[in-house]
Design a protein around this nucleic acid. Structure first.
Lengths: 213, 213
DNA sequence: TCGAAGACTAGAACATTGTTCGGTGCATGG
DNA sequence: CCATGCACCGAACAATGTTCTAGTCTTCGA
């Protein structure tokens, strides 16, 4: 059942996960699903936890290196890769205060790397929060659902970006110098690059903080 | 009408904004709203833009100082303060690829401060993206709707945090050394502090990047 | 083998919500 | 006086989450 739910979510997003659609996919009735979950909230929760399991496994398998920051980076990249393709997952994380076991474990694992930096407890707490906030936030932001036009195949991603850049360039250069400045970068930009660049800023800040103590 | 919509959203979150509730508040009929907006999407869009206007004004009024990073910091703090109290706004930003005029202008303003750092266009683009991703992501994450218990007044924020920390401490210390390490910081922590700490990591990374070039 | 208890399935029925559509005043201009 | 267009209203429809009740299948003890 969870596989079916995740499949629906992955294929067409959060709004596509309806009890009727899921029941149809499973070849059963609507009511049957309620035997396993108490409602839609729990269904989403379980689906999220379900997707997190393989990721957690991968992160746990990842060997520690001498550089804690490199390990944090690797973990963050894996998390990003998982969430980027699943906007519903990012949305779920941002909406739900209740932390599931798998997510908590992930938090802990990154935290253990941070501990090796020998910061104060407060700094460590803030560091892990910053990394997770950035990963989830950026993944949600960048991994946005392709617009209808792109789904229709009317325009591909490149022309879509190009058109946006075009709109930026059409703005008055005096009023929008920055957008003109970076419009060339926007075209053909890669989400993963953008994410890594931001992550590296945080990590650089962390390294500096660790060096001072 | 937008005032009414924003009021509903602020009071009880995104799910509270229904056409019937809004119509009741305005003392009108359900259908009337459709005379002004094409649907719920546009209603939310307009509401978001509506809230952004005063913020944009404040950011524009903010005088530039000699330190670009200080200016970026100040802008980010203002944006955070606006979004933190409005999870629906954060959610909207994360869901919507279409950038409204006010949001674009905000992006531009922060970008202009970044330009003074004299990074490459690519670095500048990534820097602004990182700041916005972090602000929105963290605001969405931290500004989560209080749980039902807290709304009921059954527990206040402090005891809620305390209970979570208690749960962390109940975990095996050998399996969760990090959570034990920071559980004390979690109790009574301030969201704004947490945000500023993360933001300062990014800014430190930026300063370093600017110094190298 | 029978029967009953429990695990599981199925779908009808209900409340809520977004949205559509035809209709109602009402001011203004001819 | 009437027609036209604007602003507004609310009944009706479709989709969806949820509940409820009845049905089926499995299992296990007497």
């Amino acid at each position: 059942m969870l596989d079916g739910a995740v499949a629906l979510l992955d294929e067409a997003g959060e709004q596509a996960l309806t009890f009727r659609a899921l029941a149809a996919r499973l070849g059963g009735g609507v009511g049957s699903i309620y035997w396993y979950v108490t409602g839609k909230d729990e269904l989403l929760e379980r689906a999220a936890d379900h997707v997190l399991a393989p990721l957690l496994h991968a992160v746990e398998e990842q060997p520690s290196t001498a550089d804690p920051l490199a390990d944090i980076r690797a973990s963050a990249l894996m998390l990003f890769a998982t969430v980027e393709q699943r906007q519903w997952l990012a949305g779920y994380f941002l909406r739900n205060t209740t932390v599931q076991p798998h997510a908590l474990r992930l938090y802990e694992l990154v935290g253990e790397h941070v501990m090796r930096l020998e910061l104060t407890p407060r700094q460590s707490f803030h560091a892990v929060s910053a990394v997770f906030g950035f990963v989830i936030g950026t993944a949600a932001d960048l991994g946005q659902r392709p617009s209808q036009e792109m789904l229709d195949g009317a325009v591909d991603r490149d022309s879509y970006l190009e058109r946006t850049a075009e709109a930026w360039r059409a703005l008055d250069r005096a009023d929008y110098p920055f957008l003109h400045h970076v419009s060339g970068e926007f075209v053909g930009h890669d989400d993963a690059d953008q994410f890594e660049a931001g992550l590296d800023l945080i990590l650089a800040g962390l390294r500096q903080q660790a060096g001072r103590s």
